[in-house]
């Protein structure tokens, strides 16, 4: 999921950085003081998540957890991912500083989409359906991220179809694992602290 330095063309890098900057701005604007610890902790989870390598499939892939983070944070997922990916790039040399914008966008945008999907359907009354929705959201976020990685690579590498096939195939195990993780954690949080879910705060 971390596109390395020197792979992408300048227009792709600039577009990615610009959209990420907008996303971070929206996220910071929406963040009130009660959200700060939550955002920081999710950022810590995201930072560690990509060290968990999934030893299935043809290439080396790792957890992203953007679906879970998206449901928990909404737009605030952008600043959380920016911090997590920045620290990964300087401490682990995952990805790079020039590709920070594109990499944040590729994981952040699907997370925000999943947030809206999860809250738009409003299945809070039915906990079984909500768990199913969390499962689908966790998988969908990774799937969309794989598509976005393919889209950002298509200007430099092969055709979109070819590269999309590779990235989605490689992330199939991650899609399934994250769907399960998201379903388990969301239903757990729902039982223990339902107000933690980002959408829940507006309904209080």
């Amino acid at each position: 999921m971390h596109i390395s330095e020197g792979v992408l063309a300048a227009p792709v890098l600039i577009t990615g950085a610009a959209v990420t900057a907008a996303g971070v701005a929206i996220g910071l604007k929406k963040m009130d003081e009660a959200d700060i610890p939550k955002t920081a902790l999710v950022a810590a989870v995201l930072f560690v998540a990509s060290l968990i390598h999934v030893p299935l499939g043809p290439t080396s892939v790792h957890l992203i957890l953007n679906g879970l983070a998206g449901i928990l944070l909404g737009w605030e997922v952008f600043p959380a991912f920016l911090v997590a990916l920045f620290l990964q790039s300087i401490l682990f040399q995952f990805g790079g500083l020039t590709t920070l914008g594109v990499n944040t966008l590729n994981v952040g945008l699907p997370a925000v989409l999943v947030y809206y999907l999860f809250n738009f359907l409003q299945l809070r009354k039915n906990s079984f359906l909500e768990t199913v929705l969390a499962f689908a959201s966790g998988g969908l976020a990774v799937f969309l991220t794989a598509l976005m990685v393919a889209a950002s690579l298509m200007f430099t590498d092969q055709s979109f179809q070819e590269i999309a096939k590779i990235t989605i195939l490689a992330h199939l195990p991650v899609i399934i694992i994250e769907a399960v993780i998201t379903a388990v954690i969301i239903s757990f949080i729902k039982k223990v602290k339902p107000e933690v879910l980002a959408g829940g705060e507006n309904n209080e």
Binding site: V48, H53, P55, S60, L63
Partner: peptide, 15 residues
């Protein structure tokens, strides 16, 4: 975090 950390020491990825 701690749980994921336990897994992570065994297998590290992505570079």
């Amino acid at each position: 975090v701690v749980l994921s950390f336990c897994f992570s020491t065994a297998v590290l990825a992505h570079r």
